[in-house]
Computed example of a mutant assay.
Amino acid sequence: MKEKYTDHADILQNSVYHTSRGSNTVFMMQDRLSAEQAVEQGATPLADSDTSFRL
């Protein structure tokens, strides 16, 4: 998850789905490595946030 309107092109390229929730963009990553890289690029794991999301 990352705040809307912030640079997230690199995260987006490794995601299989993304959507907006409030002031954030939620990404579903293709694998654990992509998720770890997203965190290194400033994303917050959904489990560590106050945002809820269901498919």
Rank of each mutant, 00 (worst) to 15 (best):
M1Q: 01
E3W: 14
E3K: 13
E3I: 10
K4T: 07
K4F: 05
Y5R: 06
Y5D: 07
T6Q: 08
H8S: 14
A9F: 10
A9N: 14
A9E: 15
D10T: 00
L12Y: 08
L12P: 05
Q13L: 06
N14F: 04
N14W: 08
V16A: 09
V16T: 15
V16S: 11
H18N: 13
T19E: 09
S20N: 02
R21D: 10
R21F: 09
G22Y: 15
S23I: 13
S23N: 15
N24G: 03
T25F: 01
V26R: 08
V26Q: 07
F27W: 05
F27E: 03
M28D: 06
M28G: 04
M29G: 05
M29H: 04
M29D: 04
R32K: 07
R32F: 06
L33K: 14
S34V: 05
S34K: 10
A35C: 08
E36F: 01
E36A: 02
Q37A: 09
Q37H: 06
Q37S: 08
E40W: 01
Q41H: 01
G42P: 00
G42R: 00
G42I: 02
T44M: 15
P45W: 05
P45R: 07
A47Q: 05
D48L: 10
S49G: 06
S49Y: 09
T51W: 09
T51Y: 06
T51D: 05
S52D: 02
S52M: 03
S52Q: 03
R54W: 09
R54T: 10
L55A: 11
